[in-house]
Amino acid sequence: MNALYEIIQNLTSYSGVSGFESMSFQTLCPYIKSLNLFDETGTTPVGSFYGIIRCGKENAPMLLLDAHLDTVGFVVTELCDGGFLRVAPVGGIAPKILPSSIVNIYGKKTIKGVFASKPPHLQSAGESEQKMDIADLSIDTGLPLEELKDIVRIGTPVGFPCELQKMLNDNLAGASFDDRLCGAIILRALQTIDKSQLNYDIAFQFSGNEETGYKGAMTTAYRLNPEKAIVIDVTHANVPGAPDVFKDIHAGKGSVITLSPQTNRAFTKQVISIAENNGIPYQLSAFPIRTGTNSNAVQTTRNGIPVCLISVPLKNMHTMSEVVNLNDALNTAKLIAAVINQKEQSND
C-alpha cells in the first residue's frame, strides 16, 4: 500500500486541467521514467503521455492500459479590478463546492486563489435556495490587478490543489483522483509483473482531454494500435442520497467491472473469471448507454479494439475532496496484473 500511496502522491501533485495536460509533462515525464518501467515513452499533440513495455518479439500484439491524465478545472475568462478572476468550468463542477475553496492558478508562475463568497450582509432571504452559476463567482488572488496581469491572462488554467488526507479504513481523500489514481494503479500493477515472461507488448496511455470529449484516448490508441485494451477509470460509490443506480457500488468492496455496449462482453467476461479465479473482489455495474469513460473512444478506434472497463469506486467525484478506499485501488492493481499474467499463460 505504501508503494501505491507514493505513486498517488506524485501523480496528484502535477497540474493538468483538461486541455492543458502538457503543462505537467515537464515534471510528470521524468517521474514516470524514473520508475524504469517502460522501454519507450512519449507524449502526443492531444495531451497524452504513453509508455510501452516491449516483450522483444517482432510484431507482438499489444495490450493497452488506459487511464486519463486530465482533470476538471477552470479557465480564466476575465481579470477584474481588485485582483479577482472570473472563470469558466472545464468539465462538470458543481458550483456549491466552490465558495471559500482554494485553487491553484497555473499562470506564468503558480499562485493560489480563493473562490469568493458573497458577504452575508449582502445576501437576501432565501438566497441560499437559489441556483448558483460559476460565471457569477470570482477568484480572489490577493494581488493588485497590475501585478496579476503579469502572471495570469485570459485562458490561464485553474485547478484544485491536491492535499492528501488519510481517513479511517484506508480511505484517502484528495483532488484529481479522477483519474490520476487509476494512472497510479496501472503503474503499480506494472511494477509487480515479471516483464521477462511477456510474450506481447504492454502500453500505458495516460490520456489527455477525457473530461472534455475523450480526444486523447482515441488519438493515442490510434497511434499505439493495440490488440485489446483495458480502460481504468473511477465510478461513483454509494453515498447518502445517491440515486438507486449507484446504491450497490460500495467503496471498499472491490473493483467495479462494467457491462455495457461500449465495452467488449467476451473480454469483460474473461476479466471477471480472472478475478474469480484469483479471489480478487469485484462488483458489477451496468451502463446500458454511455459509460462516461474512454471505453467507447478506444473501442471505436481503427478497426475496433475490444475493451474491458474496470473502475474504482470513488466518492465526491469532481471535487477537491474525492475519496477512494485504497484497498479498492490495490485490488484493481492486482486484477490488472492478474489479467497480464493470464494472457502470458494462455498466449492469447
Binding site: 462538470g92 458543481a94 456549491k96 448558483m132 461513483h236 453515498v239
Partner: peptide, 22 residues
C-alpha cells in the same frame, strides 16, 4: 479525527438540483 463535509456529486444531482446547494 479528520473528516470531509460531503454532499451528492454533480453527477448525482437531478437537472433541477444542478447549481443548487442542498
Amino acid at each position: 479525527i479528520q473528516g470531509l463535509v460531503s454532499s451528492k456529486s454533480i453527477h448525482m444531482q437531478t437537472p433541477e438540483e444542478r447549481g443548487k446547494c442542498e
